[in-house]
């Protein structure tokens, strides 16, 4: 390897820093253009419905399956620890709190990034490479309003709902294992859960988390698609970037949000 002077290294660091800042600036402008102002298309609702299908309905199977299994595993693990302290009935509380506060929003965010986020990036990248986006511009339709905005809204709407569904099926899976298999008394399972779960502190904070994750993941996915190099290589790189950046953003933001919401406990 060639030896570089210290100054040169500093310069390279500056160059990459500037590139990152530029990309972030583009992403912010992009979001602003897409979400602010008149939609400019008359069938905006139909477009949104179509994207809700692609982003939300098609993500349902993976969310439900993952939710059931995670709930079941939580119940098994929780039981084996709690039973030592003679408080096996607290397994309901443990499963519910874990799902509502952490795993529901976070795992949904990660699965969403993998399932819907990568699909969004690839789809938009493909539209760019086949000149469909240019062609929209030439027809006089703003692609940010026509292509991007409905996808953004679909992501914002569907992910909190997916997270809620995830938590519900997870709790159901946990209840199934705890009550039917491990023999925890059903009444104390639910009562313990209801006593310890607070609507405002746990359910609502979980929903807020998933809204934040929805915003970030969809934004990253859509921007990576729109900003990608319009070749097949460029699209595959952008898809990978979407999954990596979105997952890291979810995990990082989760820590910050948890510290803000539950930090004073």
């Amino acid at each position: 390897m060639k030896r570089r002077s210290l100054l040169e290294r500093v310069r390279l660091l500056g160059v990459s820093g500037l590139a990152v800042l530029q990309a972030m600036g583009r992403a912010v402008l992009f979001l602003g253009h897409a979400l602010i102002g008149r939609s400019g298309t008359r069938n905006g609702f139909a477009l949104l419905v179509k994207q809700l299908y692609g982003v939300g309905v098609l993500s349902l199977p993976i969310i439900i399956v993952a939710g059931v299994f995670i709930g079941m595993v939580l119940a098994l693990q929780g039981y084996s620890i709690l039973v030592d302290y003679g408080s096996a009935q607290a397994v309901g509380q443990m499963v519910a709190l874990t799902l509502l506060r952490e795993l529901g929003p976070v795992v949904t965010g990660l699965l969403f990034a993998g399932r819907a986020g990568s699909a969004l990036t690839a789809e938009i990248g493909n539209m760019k490479s086949t000149e469909q986006i240019s062609s929209l511009e030439m027809i006089g339709v703003d692609p940010l309003k026509y292509i991007i905005a409905p996808r953004l809204w679909a992501g914002f709407i569907s992910m909190p709902l997916l997270a809620a569904i995830f938590s519900v099926v997870g709790i159901w899976g946990g209840a199934m294992v705890a009550i039917d298999w491990l023999g925890v008394y059903e009444g104390s399972f639910w009562a313990n859960m209801q006593n310890s779960v607070s609507f405002y502190d746990d359910v609502l904070n979980g929903v807020i988390k998933s809204v934040v994750f929805a915003f970030v993941v969809t934004w990253i996915a859509v921007f990576q698609g729109y900003d990608c190099e319009p070749t097949s290589e460029g699209i595959s790189r952008a898809t990978t970037r979407t999954v990596v950046y979105a997952s890291l953003a979810v995990l990082g933001l989760d820590f910050i949000l948890t510290a803000l919401m539950f930090g004073d406990f």
Partner: peptide, 11 residues
């Protein structure tokens, strides 16, 4: 009106 190289039909 523009005719793009690939046609650019909405797939």
């Amino acid at each position: 009106g523009v005719l793009f190289q690939s046609g650019a039909l909405f797939t």
